[in-house]
Amino acid sequence: MNIEFLETLNLYMNLPFVQNAIIVAILISLCSSLLGVTLVLKRFSFIGDGLSHVAFGAMAIAMALNFVDKMFLLLPITIISAILLLKSGRKAKMSGDAQIALVSVGALALGYLIINRFSKSANISADVCTTLFGSTSILTLTKTEVNVCIILSVVVVIVYILFYNKIFAVTFDENFAKGIGLNTEFYNLLIAIVIAVIIVLAMNLVGSLLISALIIFPAISAMQICRSFKQVTICAIIYSLVTTILGLMGAIIFDTPVGSTIVVVEIVIFIIFYILGKIKGGIVA
């Protein structure tokens, strides 16, 4: 039984599309965990959900227009939506969470309607299923998509490293950051763009409906046992990498949907962290 298992694992590991999936999954989980800490602390956890539904709507339009590489439509639409949602929240008559909810359900409904009526795909239910739940999308990336994912992930990580101190300041105390002369508008805009990029990338891994898990779980899990911002960030990265790899490998070996398997692994490890946190008496989010 063990030899069979190892042979199966070896067979799968030799497949180029599995190796591409692992590479992209590692990079996406790294980026999403970095950003998740900022989003959770700024109480923007649900913006990932809203933007992922906008991305689904954009994906529907791309399918209807028969785009070969859909990311070139997804990215601009999601980025613009992120900027509008984050900028208008403070001045609008509607509260921020109401705006996110409005945009979220609207985009989801419109997207499904567009796919249903205008998609030229031979298998609409597969397209919807894989976009919403990420069942096989990470395993069916084109070469262009793999290269774009790698480039964007590297850019996100570099931006985070270069602007780490400023992002830290804007995250924890925006008024203080403004007071010391930081251009908070610019850094909030930068965060919005980075969020949008990560949402579009993460759709390939876990699908639109489960993106929030990829962003939120690493941060809140790390906060159960860690105290400082640095510790939480590093712990979130490790948590995200481990859960993503375990989830992806589990899905491949046991033939389960990739997105759901990753999220279930995250839930299990969150519970472990939560218990450890209770024992240790760490900070609870």
């Binding site: 497949l15 180029p16 599309f17 096989t136 069916t140 491949i252």
Partner: peptide, 18 residues
């Protein structure tokens, strides 16, 4: 032949994409 389920599906899709 040794691939099953989503691995087989993914490989066939990859053949069509590349």
């Amino acid at each position: 032949v040794q691939l099953k389920g989503q691995m087989l599906y993914s490989q066939v899709v990859n053949i069509m994409e590349d």
